[in-house]
Design a binder for these strands. Structure first.
Lengths: 247, 247
DNA sequence: GTGTATAGTAATGCATACGTTATTGAACGC
DNA sequence: GCGTTCAATAACGTATGCATTACTATACAC
């Protein structure tokens, strides 16, 4: 297929381009500027799913969603396609989109991916060095976790934990890792919510986080990778065990 | 503008429904039954991009693609949304979709992801054991690579190499890893085509593959992970170096 | 009572129409 | 000759209409 000869060079010539080459790597929103109806539908549906307002396993018809969101089927349909690409719904003809339940086996898969990529990210951070502010953020998150643990505030603990991991991942210097980890986090999110109150006090998690920060600060990539890997593997086992006993 | 149905009830109630079927987890492309126009558009465009028929950096308008594919804009648009989610194009209003060029830096990112996930997969395969047919496939691929190397047939070598890695990944027992690796493979595909003829004879690659198979057959997960990691890291460095010197 | 054929219906897949908006090109002032 | 303004236009985002098709329920045969 040839591109229409606008002003740009059309054909197959691999012309190195100086086009405003900012690759948008976030699947979340298409334009940075103005969200269109499809973006809104996507964001709203995603929010409803991740918060649990739309129960796993339930179906949502295009027309239903369109009516509720005050738009036509077209942008809703596009949003559903995006959500499917993200792996959090499936689309079945004449049943609408179905919010995928996250089974214990799914959680195992998700945590295997997260373990792999996050450990790699931790290694990258340690090897390439970390910005001062990011290191401060990490230490603050660790402190907040300790604090929350003292107060038995699981909500605050989870929040600090998330902040820790997000800061770490965002420092890894690989947008594709960031994006992919994000995607699988969101899939695991509902399950984490579900099990937050069921798990034992995460004292060991706190120790692991602190050790990881030390390895990163020292620039010990191997240790950082290993520590993070063990950390996530343990968390994954815990979660899947809980989940498989739950329903 | 006509009257908008302002049913701004901010919540979507889940629709309870019977759930007869088992969860199907194929987020990317799911022409499970019969492919519809959108599936066709997706497959055709993807093929055109990955084969290089649509040059990196070039734009394709919705209308162009629709005319070319003999369908209306609607399914083409859906296909483009999918391709964007896969990270191989971006969509810019009034310019259509733009095939993203893969820079050396992009390749670094992609190979970091692949190194991580494939090493994990290799470890999983070693730990969980591998089906007899798969092991046969691996050994056959190794033999084919040796053979191709003797004959200086780079095309055949690349094919055997791909077969090796695909067999390995598909044996890992984690659909999400398989899917994600697939996605990033396709992003790296064009660059590999580009550099296939520029790289030195992959004798070392062959040795590495053979060693990896032995580790897997022995069930030595740690060795398998380590070997695969080194293998991919080396390949990634080679490729990014070539790419950064190329254009 | 159970199973099957059939008609009705609902939801989709796709095409198309329409309003909006960025881009292009030309007119115009300097 | 060069830059700015403005209108024409192209392409898109969205809504809507239509044909298709899977699901449901009813009727009917056994």
């Amino acid at each position: 297929m040839t591109t229409k000869p606008r002003k740009k060079s059309p054909d197959l010539k691999p012309v190195p381009r100086k086009v405003p080459t900012r690759t948008r790597l976030t699947p979340v929103a298409s334009p940075s500027g103005k969200p269109n109806q499809a973006d809104i539908a996507y964001a709203r549906l995603r929010e409803l799913i991740l918060s649990g307002a739309i129960a796993p396993g339930s179906f949502v018809l295009e027309l239903e969603a369109a009516a509720r969101l005050g738009m036509s089927r077209t942008p809703v349909r596009e949003a559903m396609v995006r959500l499917r690409a993200e792996g959090i719904v499936e689309i079945r003809a004449r049943h609408g989109m179905r919010v995928l339940p996250v089974s214990a086996d799914d959680m195992r898969e998700i945590y295997e991916v997260l373990t792999s990529l996050e450990a790699t990210a931790a290694g990258l951070v340690a090897r390439r060095g970390i910005a001062k502010e990011a290191l401060v953020s990490l230490n603050m998150a660790v402190a907040n976790m300790d604090d929350a643990l003292d107060r038995d505030d699981l909500e605050a603990w989870a929040q600090a934990d998330e902040s820790f991991h997000r800061t770490l991942i965002n420092s890894c210097g690989n947008r594709r890792i960031i994006q992919t980890v994000d995607q699988f986090w969101s899939q695991a999110h509902r399950a984490r919510l579900l099990t937050l109150r069921l798990r034992p006090k995460p004292t060991q998690s706190n120790r692991e986080h602190a050790a990881l920060v030390r390895a990163i600060a020292k620039g010990d990539a191997d240790a950082a990778m290993r520590l993070h890997q063990e950390h996530r593997e343990r968390a994954g086992r815990l979660l899947t065990d809980l989940l498989s006993k739950l329903p």
